[in-house]
Write a protein that binds this DNA or RNA. Sequence first.
DNA 1: TTGTATGCGTTATCAG
DNA 2: CTGATAACGCATACAA
Lengths: 333, 333
Amino acid sequence: MNQKIFVSAKEVADRAGVSRSAVSRTFTPGASVSEETRRRVMEAAEALGYHVNHLARGLMRNESGLVCLIVSEMDTPYRASLIRAISRQLQNVSKIAMLINTDRSDKSVDDALRLAISYRADASIILSGMPDKSISDLCVKSGQRLVLINRDEEREGALMINLHDREAARRAFIAFQRAGCRRLAFANSDVGTPSLMAREEGFVSAAQAAGFEVAVERFGSTRYQSGVVLAQRLLTREVRPDAIFCANDLLACGVMDTARHQFRLEIPNDLCVVGFDDIEQASWSSYELTTFAQPVDRIAEEAVSWLAKPLYDAGLSCKLSAELNWRGSVRGG
Amino acid sequence: MNQKIFVSAKEVADRAGVSRSAVSRTFTPGASVSEETRRRVMEAAEALGYHVNHLARGLMRNESGLVCLIVSEMDTPYRASLIRAISRQLQNVSKIAMLINTDRSDKSVDDALRLAISYRADASIILSGMPDKSISDLCVKSGQRLVLINRDEEREGALMINLHDREAARRAFIAFQRAGCRRLAFANSDVGTPSLMAREEGFVSAAQAAGFEVAVERFGSTRYQSGVVLAQRLLTREVRPDAIFCANDLLACGVMDTARHQFRLEIPNDLCVVGFDDIEQASWSSYELTTFAQPVDRIAEEAVSWLAKPLYDAGLSCKLSAELNWRGSVRGG
DNA sequence: TTGTATGCGTTATCAG
DNA sequence: CTGATAACGCATACAA
């Protein structure tokens, strides 16, 4: 690594003919500096290209301004929009997002959290996976905030933001029922995330309570290609479903495309489909997918405003509702 | 902000019965520590939950390990996948991505770059917008690396990664020609990014050289909805195009959906479409879009490997090719 | 190999 | 309001 030569407060002080403290105060909101001193400092800073060293400031203040975002498959539409919403909100409160990729393994989440500790991040926000309790406890004990989004498991001292998945699933069933569907199915991935399982269980139990059986298939990840496979499995069953609730929109897109192009089915006439997330593609005219909207802005807001709070109640839980967006993939509406 | 209490090297040293330097050396690869000392230090560190403070380390070493990613509309498929590729590669070389959202204004890019300087980022990678020369010069002068991706403008000392846009556009024309298309059109946004304009100019000039006129429309952003509008304008022209080259895939999706559902056109029989980026949706069976693939992994690799190089040649330029992915949206192939 | 002393760029404390 | 001085947590030159 080549040498970096940033200009320091001392250099600014020398040029302005004041003490280093004066420079520091000039860049500390609310500190008392005379107008004249501030002017001379600013002038020197401008000329030299001085910028406060946030590393050193963080060291002193014990507050880095860094917030760690821990996430896998971040190129997925829902994840990407959530990351965007969060990072924007963080910028509004003068914090900055550090992005860490994880893979399927929970070990990579542990490593990410260790990294967050190393950088003295003010908080970590976990969008994927679940860290080991020992390491998440260490975070909390060290005074680092922890936010878990759609991770149902409990963690002491963390803010947990979840959706009413079961309730949404119940409404999906009602939507199908109103559309006159009788042969229900649920298309799930086999990753088994609590929130995905809650959608499945909520749907199945609501249907059963009304005397309906549900054909359930689980396969692969929560991406488009898995939807293709799931549709192939479901639509070749002896009793072909006339309604499929998909664990998320990406699966739903794969299901719809396969139903149309491979099985020549018309949506919603032959088959009704409901998804979850309300990614941008859901509104595209090839899909017009009826789906539950993840309140990404709301989620980001809840997370960031909690981080900004000076005191906080440990073990807070925040339950949000997912609104159903009616579009053309279900009859009636 | 509540108090953070991380364990320091001194505490580890006390518990292990060694000096603080011994602890430091234990966590510095390549430093000379006896096996016995290292063992005791590691044991104490483990028990106490010690993690090296990267803020302090960065202050000493003059190398933060932070790399700033400056990007707008990061929830867009191409951007999201590029961010993912870059952040993964960074992690491989023990660096970490800081994410900064910008909006349309170049001022927000300047602000982002200032933030990068404040955090003493080892490098900044700009995916959107263009900073003022004075501020980008300050970065370079300060020893911070600068990478510009698909930003044609020149910056002293920066690595510029670009695609052969004009060449790709020429191949798009050839593809249409082979498919027997005669009424060519280009669908562009009106943001006027150099790389987008290069695609337009390359396409138009290649067509003109062969004696074809091109209907050009420019509107809005590079997103789906703009594609809808562009299709409406192009397909209601007196001579209806039978081939549309779109500045990117998102526009192409909007164009295709509109052509099909609003104008009842068959693709590729009535209309051939070519896009740019090769986002995931391009391969979905509703689109089967023939498109140029942005080599995201390659771009990320070039950027990150340059950052890892100890010495570097100023003003490096890297030109990459975009491969054409043939799918069903163009006849023949 | 080990410990001591010094400095990295800040901010906070305190005396003036 | 201002300037000197002491931390913050770490890495390293130096002496042992």
